[in-house]
């Protein structure tokens, strides 16, 4: 299975994401520079965490308008799975692939720590592999993770079962404890927590291993 990781200026979880993808697929992903205008042949696109453009102006704003994103949007519309983690989630909302926005954390401070997440949607292709576990532990590390959308959108997300993960102990003020959401087609997932950081018992957990293994198998 061929996967790729988009690298923006000051992406900083690109290597971590590549390690997780290689562990799950047995194949090194292509690292695609943001300045490219077209993606290589790929079955899975990952937008990694980091501080693209220093998070200046708005998190994800400038990365969302970088040349490669036009092709990412097109591929997403064609049904290619796209996973945005942390800054990648912010980029997805900036491009309109996912609704809402990620505002400054309610406590105003950067937060880093393990979070227990409820797997809110156990039917989507991204998450149904986790249906045997109601909860997963992924760490968060962000300054702007406070998920915000208007009531109508929030109701729709909940009504259509598009909330993928919810925080048990809301760390950032996110509306309705939302940690990750899906698009209607179920091929785009954005989440603030970092599954790629829990892929070994040495690093504090293996819930990320399970997430990547099952999600990539679904799409493979």
């Amino acid at each position: 299975m061929k996967s790729c990781v988009i690298v923006f200026p000051a992406s900083n979880c690109d290597r971590d994401a590549a390690v997780a993808l290689e562990q799950a697929t047995g194949q090194k992903p292509d690292m695609v520079w943001h300045g490219e205008t077209s993606l290589p042949d790929t079955d899975f696109i990952l937008l990694p965490g980091g501080f693209s453009y220093g998070d200046y102006l708005r998190s994800g704003a400038m990365a969302g308008r970088s040349p490669i994103m036009q092709d990412v949007v097109k591929k997403a519309e064609d049904g290619v799975p796209v996973l945005g983690i942390c800054n990648g989630f912010q980029v997805l909302t900036e491009t309109g692939l996912l609704p809402g926005a990620l505002m400054r954390n309610a406590g105003l401070e950067f937060i880093c720590g393990m979070q227990t997440l409820q797997v809110a949607n156990t039917q989507s292709r991204f998450t149904r592999g986790l249906s045997d576990r109601a909860f997963v532990d992924f760490p968060v590390a962000h300054h702007d993770g406070n998920y915000t959308a208007d009531q109508e959108t929030l109701n729709r997300l909940e009504g259509e079962n598009l909330v993928a993960f919810r925080y048990v102990t809301n760390p950032n003020g996110s509306s309705r404890n939302i940690a990750g959401i899906l698009n209607e087609k179920g091929n785009v997932l954005g989440l603030m927590p970092h599954p790629e950081r829990v892929i070994s018992p040495l690093l504090g957990g293996e819930d990320g291993t399970a997430f990547f293994a099952t999600a990539l198998k679904e799409f493979g």
């Binding site: 900083n12 979880c13 290597r15 971590d16 390690v19 997780a20 965490g49 401070e109 950067f110 937060i111 880093c112 720590g113 760490p139 590390a141 970092h194 790629e196 950081r197 892929i199 040495l202 690093l203 504090g204």
Partner: peptide, 13 residues
Amino acid sequence: WSQYDHTVMGDTV
């Protein structure tokens, strides 16, 4: 230290 990213790079044991 919860204000420091201490797990990025995926090598913090």
